[in-house]
Each structure stands twice: as structure tokens, then as C-alpha cells.
Design a protein around this nucleic acid. Structure first.
Lengths: 229, 229
DNA sequence: ACCAAAAAGAGAGCACCGCTCTTGCTTCGG
DNA sequence: CCGAAGCAAGAGCGGTGCTCTCTTTTTGGT
């Protein structure tokens, strides 16, 4: 499908990729706020206006980078999970969480792009949703397997959440106990709280030995969801 | 100390405050990335270069806003805590967490400023530390009271964390059980994961009935730390 | 095979930005 | 009362995102 498209189409995809790569380089060097279309164009030997043939605005370039980042994170998590796919649910859970943290530490600016503050008036387009969901789906799958293996213990849940818990269960993971789904969604958010605090410096002079701390916290998260040791 | 300082000093503090207020206005309207010194100056009827008498750079203005935001959040949390200071630890814990969430929802851009991605090359100056610590100290105090009342139950902790847990305990909350301190630090980070996900749209089409969900998650957090119901 | 249409690049230009420097005016303190 | 310090103003530098126009190149239908 590459060669059949003609020289022009091939050049387009190549240049689009080159732009994204150069932009990613700027991202790791300077951060999202300093990403400059003109600098990207300069690096590629183009004139700035030519860039607008490929991305209608700076924010669209950022959106493309966001989707790539979600996909990169999702792929890293999936790869780590695949390596322990036959292990116990708790191990799989830990592997995914550890992979998320490792990816974040390796790509801090891209992590900030997707889980930090959203840019100015910008709201993430629907396009990002599937890529963003990959880690969540992985965690749901682990809990589902545990449930089917009868290795999921259920905690108590206040009655007021009954309705919402059932709705979330129907939407996200039908068949699972609603209490587990509620705890899972919370654990999902809390995981990124841990990663974000480490990455953005909040743990400075608070947590020093971070990897074991993280592993421990993540196991506690899993226990909260009902994953047995 | 205001009137005794002479007209010039009084004017300086007033203008500094006016600049911060105008900047805060821009912040809620446009977000931190679009905060423009020139626009602030325009709004105040000054010329842009005059602003540099008060803040040596845009980042310094942002730093001032960051400190104010930490203080505003800390004050809101402390006020909410004071209202239930005589209640059971779990209630006090919940009150503080709910206040953090409420403040974040009411001041999303300021929340993004302090708990979102850090700006470009910028590292938070040491000045922000005391203001940033207020909520954490509140939570520590609640757990300490629970411990002194004998209402703190301790969970198991892997041996590998012994060293780090003891160090954190000595630094943050000497006298408390190290397992509780470890869980507390994790819960502290996880709290902001919950708030951030709601605020930055990650819960869109996932969690709908957010306040009860949050309260529930926060109670689970407290249980994890060892606070009895 | 040709030729109109579509796509792409180049350049000039607009309005804005952070920031610096110089020039006068006002207030302060000895 | 007067020199020094603080302050506002203006011009200007290099940078930004983005638009518009003009030219060249590639494409696809007749």
C-alpha cells in the first residue's frame, strides 16, 4: 500500500513522520510549551508555512503526538503484560503498573503531555480515546481473568454507589462484581497519581527509594481490587 | 506596617497584588500557557516593560501564582478540617479530601498549575515547599490523632520496605507505625490521581456520578492507611 | 498524450509574544 | 534641598502562530 500510492502520497507520509519525529525531539528537549512549528520547520529545512500542509495548526501537531504517546505507553504496557501472561493475576497487574511507571520515567515529557494538565482551551478529540484506553483494558482483562479463575475476593461497598457501580460495570466490564469494577476504576486513577507525583517532583525529599515503594503501593492497589496474593 | 511604609511601598504592594489578580483572571480564562505579560499590563493600563519592576520574568509571576494556589488550597483544606476537628478521624480525613476535590473543581487552572505538568525547564523553587505541604501535614495530623486514640489498625508490609519506611517515618511522622506512614504517603499521591483524572477529563464517559464515587474511593484510601470506620 | 485540477513549497506579512535598554519623571532619605 | 533610588514609558530585538499569494510539480480523466 506504500508503493502503490504514488510518489506524492509516499512523500507525504514520510514527511508527516519526519515532522512528528522532529517535534518529538523538541518535546523531550524543551517540553510541550516550547514546541515551535518554526523550529521544527527549520530543523527539516522547510519554511514554516509549508508545515501547514501537514498539520493545520500547532495544536493538531500536539494531538498527533498525544495519540502517539498513548499508543507508545499502551504498547509498552501490553508488551510487559504479554511477557507474564501466564502468571498469577497479581503478577500481571504488577507488571503492567511497573511498565507504566518505567515508560513514564523514560518519556517524561510525553507522559506530561497525556496525563499532565491539558493545554490551553484544548479538549482531547475523540480520536485519542482508543489509544488512551489500552492500559485500562489491560487491567480490566487481568481482573476478569482473576474473576473467572475464582481468585477475586470482593470487599464491601456502600449502598449509595449501587446504581453507578452497576452502570460502570455494564459499560466497562459486564460480568464482573460491581464492587471490583468500582475499586478498579479508582485504582486506575490512583496508579497515575503515584506515577505523576514521582515524575513531577512531589516525592522529592519524601520518597527516596521509589521503585520498591511503587511496587508496594501497586500491590496494595491490587489487593483493594480483590486480587489475591 | 502598611501605612508606615510610605506611599511608594504601599503602592508597590498594591500594584503587585493587582498584577497577580489580573494574571489570575487570565489564568482562569486562558490557562497558564497563554498567560501573557503584555495582556496583563494592558488590562492594568500599564506598559509591558513596567511589569518587570514587579516580576523579573513571566516565570516568576507564575511562581507567585503557584505559591498562592498552594496556599489557597491549603487554606480551604484546613478550613474544612477545622469544621469537623472533633469528629472521628475517618470523618476528618474525608472532609479534607472532599475539600481538596472541591477546591480543584472550583479552580481547575490553578490546580493544573500546581499538580499538572510542570512548565518548560522550570523547577519549583524551595519557596513553594511550605505552602505545598499543608494538605499533607493535615493528613498526617489526622492519622497521628487516630494512632494516639488507639484507633489505627496496621496492615502487613513487605520486609524490603522496612528501611525506607523507617526513614519516611522519621522524616514525616515520627512515632507512627511505619506501615501506616507508607500507606499514607501512597494515599496522598493517589488522592491527587483521583482528583486529576476527574479534572482533566479522564473520567469522561467512565465515571458519571463523581462525588459519591470520590467519597467512596477516599474512604477506601483511609481504610488502607488504617483508619477505622 | 495532453491539460486542467489538485497538491506542495516559498516568501512576505500580520499581530502578537518575552524581554532589554534608554530616557525622563517622581519620590525618598540624609 | 538635593542626590539617589524607584518607576513608567517607549522603542526595539528576535521570536512565535498563522494567513495569503504566487509559483512549481504531480496527478488523473479524457
Amino acid at each position: 500500500m506504500n508503493t502503490a500510492k504514488g510518489a506524492r502520497a509516499r512523500a507525504r507520509t514520510e514527511i508527516t513522520a519526519a515532522i512528528k519525529e522532529a517535534a518529538r525531539g523538541q518535546l523531550v528537549a524543551e517540553g510541550a510549551a516550547k514546541l515551535s512549528l518554526r523550529a521544527v520547520a527549520r530543523e527539516l529545512g522547510m519554511v514554516s508555512s509549508a508545515l501547514y500542509r501537514y498539520f493545520p495548526s500547532r495544536d493538531d501537531l500536539l494531538t498527533a503526538l498525544i495519540i502517539d504517546a498513548y499508543d507508545s505507553l499502551g504498547a509498552a504496557a501490553e508488551k510487559a503484560h504479554h511477557a507474564v501472561a501466564d502468571a498469577a493475576p497479581l503478577e500481571r497487574w504488577t507488571a503492567v503498573c511497573v511498565a507504566v511507571r518505567a515508560w513514564a520515567l523514560a518519556h517524561p515529557h510525553e507522559y506530561a503531555l497525556i496525563y499532565g494538565s491539558p493545554v490551553p482551551g484544548y479538549t482531547a478529540p475523540q480520536t485519542t480515546v482508543p489509544a488512551a484506553a489500552r492500559v485500562g483494558l489491560l487491567l480490566i482483562g487481568i481482573v476478569r481473568d482473576a474473576h473467572e479463575q475464582g481468585r477475586l475476593t470482593g470487599p464491601a461497598l456502600p449502598a449509595e454507589l449501587g446504581r453507578e457501580a452497576e452502570r460502570m460495570t455494564a459499560d466497562l466490564a459486564p460480568g464482573l462484581p460491581p464492587e471490583a469494577v468500582t475499586a478498579l476504576v479508582a485504582a486506575w486513577a490512583q496508579l497515575y497519581g503515584l506515577v505523576g507525583f514521582e515524575l513531577f517532583g512531589q516525592f522529592h525529599r519524601v520518597v527516596e527509594d521509589r521503585e520498591p515503594f511503587f511496587r508496594h503501593a501497586v500491590v496494595r492497589l491490587a489487593r483493594g481490587v480483590g486480587l489475591e496474593p
